[in-house]
């Protein structure tokens, strides 16, 4: 019996993305094996978020192809989860934490159908996983920043996807939330899920992630953290001046 799972979770070939003909991601090849926890790092404006959005078809690709588990995105939409940046929504929106979590199931529900008992139970379970079960009926504006981020992660968890993109989940959260999210990420990896995280903090890359992609418009390096996250690569990504400013050299 041949191995049923394809060897590559995310396969990006020759991807180029441009805003008004200004390249933001340039001729990028990226192959992510399944079951890894990967950070995407790079300076501001290096195209990290754009890379994710282009992979998900949220911004148009100027050239190149993207495959998930050997298939184009449209065929495997439900196997791919996404956590946008926390600042991308209006947290004063009248909705509850439970309701927000249920939104993760809308894709599986399809048009018109409403969430039922089973969906509620799954959402509550996801909220328990992120420690927000007692906040289920709160309006989302009443949460702290860290709790908001965790509710976003809960929404992704109910998607029950095989591959997750997370855009800066550690941005402006407290230490407790950061630890909780890291735990969840590692749990997901132990379940053979692939998680790709846009990350800012170079100090924690080695602790949190087993794979890393260094990006500055072009792909600088990608692979297991031990191999790719070298000083030379970091220097090539950030430029030596920036590196000194970060106190990494």
């Amino acid at each position: 019996m041949p191995d049923q799972t394809p060897p590559i979770a995310l396969d990006i070939e020759d991807l180029t993305v441009a805003y008004r003909s200004q390249p933001v991601v340039w001729d990028l090849d990226l192959h992510v094996p399944p079951g890894v926890l990967m950070a995407i790092v790079g300076p501001n404006g290096a195209g990290k978020s754009t890379l994710i959005k282009a992979a998900l078809g949220l911004v148009p690709r100027a050239a190149g192809s993207v495959h998930f588990f050997g298939k184009p995105y449209d065929e495997v939409r439900l196997r791919v989860g996404y956590v946008p940046q926390r600042g991308s929504v209006d947290w004063d929106f009248p909705t509850t934490v439970l309701d927000l979590t249920l939104m993760g199931l809308y894709g599986k529900l399809g048009w018109i159908r409403r969430p039922g008992r089973a969906e509620f139970d799954r959402a509550m379970h996801a909220l328990e996983q992120v420690g927000l079960q007692d906040f289920a009926h709160r309006q989302i504006g009443q949460l702290s920043g860290g709790q908001q981020q965790r509710s976003f992660i809960a929404r992704a968890l109910v998607q029950d996807a095989d591959l997750y993109f997370m855009d800066e989940p550690f941005a402006a959260v407290d230490a407790v939330t950061e630890a909780a999210i890291v735990n969840l990420l590692q749990e997901l990896r132990s379940l053979q899920r692939t998680v790709i995280v846009v990350h800012h903090d170079l100090d924690t890359v080695t602790d949190y992630f087993d794979h890393v992609t260094l990006l500055n418009v072009e792909l600088i390096a990608s692979g297991p953290t031990t191999e790719a996250f070298t000083e030379a690569n970091i220097r090539r990504t950030y430029g030596s001046r920036t590196l000194k400013a970060l106190g990494v050299s």
């Binding site: 949220l58 991308s88 927000l100």
Partner: peptide
């Protein structure tokens, strides 16, 4: 009423909405 959940998601989080519908 029929498209309630789609309208809600689009209004709240259009970026996420675009990934699932």
């Amino acid at each position: 009423a029929l498209f309630w959940k789609e309208l809600k998601l689009l209004t709240f989080d259009p970026v996420f909405a675009a990934t699932i519908m």
